[in-house]
Design a protein around this nucleic acid. Sequence first.
DNA 1: AATGAATGAGAGTTCATTCAT
DNA 2: GATGAATGAACTCTCATTCAT
Lengths: 217, 217, 217, 217
Amino acid sequence: MAPAATPSKPRKTPVQARSINTVEVILQACVQVLLDGGLARLTTTRVAQRAGTSVGSLYQYFPDKQSLLAAALERHLTQVIAAVEGACARAKGKTAAAMAATVVDAFVSAKFVDHPASRALYAVAAEVSGALVVEQMTQRSQRALCDMLATASDRTYSNLAEVGFVLSTAAVGPVQALLASNASLKSVRAIQQQLTLMMCAYLKTTGTTRRAAKRRT
Amino acid sequence: MAPAATPSKPRKTPVQARSINTVEVILQACVQVLLDGGLARLTTTRVAQRAGTSVGSLYQYFPDKQSLLAAALERHLTQVIAAVEGACARAKGKTAAAMAATVVDAFVSAKFVDHPASRALYAVAAEVSGALVVEQMTQRSQRALCDMLATASDRTYSNLAEVGFVLSTAAVGPVQALLASNASLKSVRAIQQQLTLMMCAYLKTTGTTRRAAKRRT
Amino acid sequence: MAPAATPSKPRKTPVQARSINTVEVILQACVQVLLDGGLARLTTTRVAQRAGTSVGSLYQYFPDKQSLLAAALERHLTQVIAAVEGACARAKGKTAAAMAATVVDAFVSAKFVDHPASRALYAVAAEVSGALVVEQMTQRSQRALCDMLATASDRTYSNLAEVGFVLSTAAVGPVQALLASNASLKSVRAIQQQLTLMMCAYLKTTGTTRRAAKRRT
Amino acid sequence: MAPAATPSKPRKTPVQARSINTVEVILQACVQVLLDGGLARLTTTRVAQRAGTSVGSLYQYFPDKQSLLAAALERHLTQVIAAVEGACARAKGKTAAAMAATVVDAFVSAKFVDHPASRALYAVAAEVSGALVVEQMTQRSQRALCDMLATASDRTYSNLAEVGFVLSTAAVGPVQALLASNASLKSVRAIQQQLTLMMCAYLKTTGTTRRAAKRRT
DNA sequence: AATGAATGAGAGTTCATTCAT
DNA sequence: GATGAATGAACTCTCATTCAT
């Protein structure tokens, strides 16, 4: 992001910085290796090489291949979930429609910001070790969504858990499909709009209108 | 297919029948091996053993491991898609609401009928070789959905492709999550109901009301 | 063993014979690899190469490196113990002096017949996995010795177990030292004579003279 | 060793003292690591950790792993040999029987005093690098034994070297077996008695009675 | 002088694939 | 056509050793 302003001494600092951020560098390398060749072609040696270190170093930070992959997945999902949670917090007290728009936007944006990681880590999420991470993250987002929904200004939900579940999972399929097909930004936005529409309609229909509360208090 | 009319050549037909059967047996064995141990523990030898044949035989039907997995995935998705296509055919001319209900039920039912396969093949679908199969299948179901939507008795859709896309992918996430968490039949049904509600609301909202057509024709 | 009488067709038979005796070939290769480089330099690949097979094949017969080594050790010790047991059987009813001579000769001869194996496997015996094998074998020989001693025509032993233990272990040290130093056959024989002398003297001294029994029966 | 008399150079001495101490600590750590895990699980890092230092420091005292192990073995064997040499010195001029008793006791006691080390280092002794150390030590003890035997008050030995060799190696096997089987002190003592008996008998039998010398001198 | 992170060669082991039987 | 032993490339992971700090 920083422009190549001073091309003189970017040499040493990165070395130290890298030492500290080695984990970060390795995780990024992991995603990259995943991208060209898929999970089946990912080897610990390859990841280390891509990261500019040695296998030995990699194993100093990750006990085994599984945990490396799990960490890469977790790192990515944590970012996405954080975005969703942030959106949920911001949308508290708003109308159901506003909530739908905010949340969908946060999710889609987060997924496409790190487009490569999203694509690459799909296979990892499907693996046994990844499933656990995914489940935890799903629960986290579900909780955030429920908390938000409970504060909707124009609707009440008797079956909060179910609605939260649907909300937290329904966008996954479309987004995954878009990622896989390398869709254009334009079509992504078009689908995002449809998703918003869908969730909006859903939240309006499935909730009970909240009227008195609004008026008197 | 041809009955053994001529008793002269009963040699080939049974052999072929057996071949077809063997392929089927191997594919089922593949799913089972996938189920206990995951993709990482699947080996061609193991699949062959489970199928009651030898590795050599397996390689007579599948050129390599990848195509074996792809075939297993394809077999499963074909069944699911067939169910969806059938539902789409049946729902033609009905209302948008009826369409939503029919399609969601077909999809969810198909996925849970072969629950084990659905779970097991998830990881395969995420792999590079699987992605292609998935994409083809998604397109097929999308086409079926679009064809159906065009005949809705109470709505018209200007952006058929987009709506079809959303419809064909939105249920994937929730269903995957349910499969992964080994959800009870009860919760599956509850979520199915919510999905129906959501799609119903979506189809009603996003389409233009078709009135004149109905009345006069 | 068969002299190279017909040099025409020794080609095919060995192949099949080898298939059956692959285990044997591998074990011999194991000893050879052990001989040049010691335990530390032994690798499964190296053993397989020396045996004229592939690592994969080696692992078809032995689950891991440990069991390969244990098998090699067991094979050797079994031969040695068999020799000792045979000697014990033959010496039953003889005088203590005759027993000593017979047993010592059997042991020393057995060890030096497969001189290379004896040397090479020493390190294996010292390893954790080898210790078990050694202990079992030691017990077997101890039992054989006790059985024999009980039948000595000129002596009775009140502490059979102890005497058997000493007998079965006392020759190990000298023999090991001889093997390690690549001693000449001459010195081996000289030491063997001393060992016989020692055991003979020991058996005579530690046992009670058996007189009446001899005379009257 | 020198007390810190001159306060001017208290720098080097402590350092050296510490060095010596460090070596000692490392060697002990080596034995301990050997004890839990065997030679196969011993790593230089583990030894350093157990010793409370770093690998780097370890490599300042030992050029490589082999020499570390050799040093640990040597340290142990030196103690044992010293005990034997001491016994030999003390027994000079005594009767053959007294010599046998003294020497056997010294050997067995020395081995069992540092029981753990004795057990742990067995595997090291069997390794290529250890064999050399063992051989040197064996020779030393053999020399001591020969020197002693030459002074026996009641016997003369024409084949001193051979007798010395047998004496120095015959107890190794039994003791090793006892160590490996974690025998009770009681059985150790019982076997020690038998060994004494055996060597006593041997020394008496194999030597020529020395009479005149006794009388006149 | 001490440290311990980094290196990377090399070990054990697995498994897709072939092919003689 | 079926079999499964044989192959060996490739993978994960370890650890002796070095060297910048």
